[in-house]
Design a binder for these strands. Sequence first.
DNA 1: GCCTTTCTGTAATGATCAATAAATATATCT
DNA 2: AGATATATTTATTGATCATTACAGAAAGGC
Lengths: 204, 204
Amino acid sequence: MPEKGRPRSFDRADALMRAMQVFWEKGYEGASLAALTAAMGINAPSLYAAFGCKESLYLEAMELYSQTVGTEIWAALETAPKAREAISRFLDATARAYSQADTPHGCLIALGGLHQAAVPQAVCDAVSRHRGENIAKLRDRLEAAIAAGELPANVNTEAVATFYATVQHGMSILARDDGSYESLKHVADGAMAAWDVLTRDGKH
Amino acid sequence: MPEKGRPRSFDRADALMRAMQVFWEKGYEGASLAALTAAMGINAPSLYAAFGCKESLYLEAMELYSQTVGTEIWAALETAPKAREAISRFLDATARAYSQADTPHGCLIALGGLHQAAVPQAVCDAVSRHRGENIAKLRDRLEAAIAAGELPANVNTEAVATFYATVQHGMSILARDDGSYESLKHVADGAMAAWDVLTRDGKH
DNA sequence: GCCTTTCTGTAATGATCAATAAATATATCT
DNA sequence: AGATATATTTATTGATCATTACAGAAAGGC
């Protein structure tokens, strides 16, 4: 059944995607409403009618980022048969994604809400929670590898997961300074160089 | 010889230190003039007379950070006799500094200017350049180790330096989410687990 | 003493911020 | 057609931003 009233003249999903790109490049605090409306091709009242406020628009944009760009990066974690290959491909996908010439460098979530005073609390909480969930994803993958008998049971999965997630976060900062794939790939390779030590049996 | 005119009623160095703490916690974009003047205990005209403008105050605060907090963290790099111990102690000093309860978590420089649109270009350039200089410090230490015959000559010092600097940058983000020493130390340990592989002779 | 110089407090500047009021336009429903 | 509902455009709101005019205060030089 069709909607009542005047139909909106823009595509909501397309406008959201454009907003996401602005937040990705400029951050919450650097993305003015003027910049957002210009990129989205709409006026402020249309933005508020469709998305509520800047804060809720950001939260939607973050979810969209997670479900598009984020999904690409994290796909390897579940498709690769072995944990080592899963993490390695995850880091390489990160290096490739963060160095794309046609998108902002680094991750919207990793770089978001790092200065509490500059963003609404809900934004700070949302990105922080998302980063925590990403650590959990890595930990779960490592736990699965233990359950499969692939890794020793006494591997500190929380510590290893935190290490790889933290390397990925650092790659976002590196990507902002030096967006070359080569530099990012060196970091990914460096992190994988720790694999054998981090996943060996802790008993002597 | 004493100065002409009314003497300033506050200690410039103390005011700068307080400004540094505000920028450290809130970032350039989150640190309003109102917050700065409140923390510094002075009014806006005094701030402008003594420091020029917000941008130049930030640049001075960044230098102060580098010469106080930064120096503590990087001291190990030059005092430790061997490269491995130098890097290891550098990362442990980072974990300790970033988890201090009485200071903001993470690094002013690592977290600064990540969103170009939110800060003046000069601020963005200054923090980015500083991050680059930190990579160079690590690389120089590794080169010295090669010169001392401690490491094989074909170690990719730029890549290894970039890896360790990037881990440290990631630790700033982790410290904002979870400021515990334990988590940060796990990451430091994870990075050191890569040492042997990263510094072994590349020839087979 | 007065003059000059510099700093301090108050109050204001114009710019930009996110968010909205009012009027008009375009659709469905009866 | 007329009523209702939603969207759009233009212009505006009050808040906050960094910065500064202005007048009074506190020092040295004469």
